[in-house]
């Protein structure tokens, strides 16, 4: 599913149970990161649970490739949404996108605890910083 499909699907669901369930399902579809890639420098600081994130350019050195994992299913689901937002974009396109705003639009932030919300912010900040480094 691309990000628009995910957005439509989540918006069509009523109730938090259904939304969380969908988010968890998105997480289940995200391939697990091999243990060897769960390195300390891939750990995103500022998250309550463990989040590992790798970001690079594809073989043509053009488009973004992100892979990520978490030890909690819900955070992994949130990661799936973040990845769907940024994966395959050109770095200059990615600069125009703000996944945090997208989360707010979907009403996801207000249902997360403040520390989880900050975790999501930390992941997105990390992506932005790495994208900027490509330019």
């Amino acid at each position: 599913m691309d990000i628009t499909q995910i957005q439509n699907r989540l918006n069509s669901l009523s109730g938090w149970q259904a939304k969380y369930r969908e988010i968890m399902m998105l997480g289940k579809k995200l391939p697990a990161l091999p243990e060897a890639l769960k390195t300390p420098d891939a750990l995103v600081q500022g998250c309550e649970s463990n989040v590992w994130l790798h970001l690079d350019l594809d073989e043509n050195q053009e488009r973004l490739v992100l892979i990520a994992d978490s030890d909690t299913r819900i955070v992994k689901g949130l990661l799936a949404i973040i990845l769907a937002t940024y994966n395959n974009l050109l770095p200059h396109e990615a600069k125009e996108v703000d996944a945090y705003e997208l989360f707010e639009e979907m009403g996801l932030i207000k249902h997360l605890s403040p520390s989880r919300g900050n975790g999501v912010k930390a992941i997105i900040e990390r992506i932005k910083a790495q994208v900027n480094a490509f330019q």
């Binding site: 109730g15 969380y20 968890m24 649970s49 909690t72 299913r73 819900i74």
Partner: peptide
């Protein structure tokens, strides 16, 4: 091996307030 946070988050959607961590 399920994460305590996932369980607590789902329980919360049923109005059940527990602590996890």
């Amino acid at each position: 091996d399920e994460h305590h946070f996932d369980i607590a988050t789902f329980l919360n959607t049923y109005g059940v307030a527990v602590r996890s961590g």
